[in-house]
């Protein structure tokens, strides 16, 4: 069993807080399936930024009977990862990135995918650990390219849950 961090970069992350509960519930379901007994998770708001914008927040999911197991769900508003957040990363980590942002009141991009991926790249050695979770509707992000992460549409949040489930199972079995 290995600890895992999920780093979710999204300027309106408040709309996706329910994913923490989805991960905790998936953990409980998997533990029931593999151990035959309910091991209840506890989810706590563990750390948060002190600024008014609440630029990052860390939830920690634990299981009382499995003292060493921790899953952290970290939300970040900005495209770059603040240095003080790095300390909450575990070795196993996945990144969910939505930072295609237009310049305010204009149609051209203020922040591109490449800008966003550049900030993530130093924390992971494989794009398999990264998902572009975006409302972008063009096909420009679908290009098969090993240096480019998988794209999941915001219209298919269940696909994102399935991706997180795969990683969760890998850590719980590891």
């Amino acid at each position: 069993m290995r600890n895992m961090s999920i780093i979710h970069i999204e300027d309106e992350y408040e709309e996706f807080l329910s994913l923490v509960m989805a991960v905790a519930t998936a953990m409980e379901d998997y533990l029931i399936e593999t151990r035959g007994t309910l091991l209840q998770t506890k989810t706590r708001l563990k750390y948060k930024s002190e600024d008014e914008q609440k630029s990052w927040i860390v939830y920690e999911i634990t299981v009382e009977q499995l003292h060493d197991l921790k899953v952290r769900y970290i939300y970040l508003k900005g495209p770059t990862i603040p240095i003080e957040v790095e300390q909450y990363f575990f070795q196993d980590r996945v990144f969910i990135v939505d930072v295609l942002r237009p310049v305010p009141k204009q149609t051209q991009l203020g922040i591109t995918v490449h800008d966003s991926l550049a900030s993530v790249r130093k924390y992971t050695d494989s794009m398999d650990n990264v998902v572009l979770f975006t409302a972008h509707q063009g096909t420009g992000l679908d290009t098969p390219d090993p240096h480019f992460p998988r794209k999941i549409s915001k219209a298919s949040e269940s696909d994102l849950e399935t991706f997180l489930g795969e990683r969760l199972v890998r850590c719980l079995d590891g």
């Binding site: 329910s18 998936a26 269940s158 849950e161 399935t162």
Partner: peptide, 23 residues
Amino acid sequence: DVAERLSRRQFLRDPLKKCQFRS
């Protein structure tokens, strides 16, 4: 597969789980 089942199970229990009403 197991990961998809974990996700589907939650929707089977609550198909409305992703519905939001202006926060």
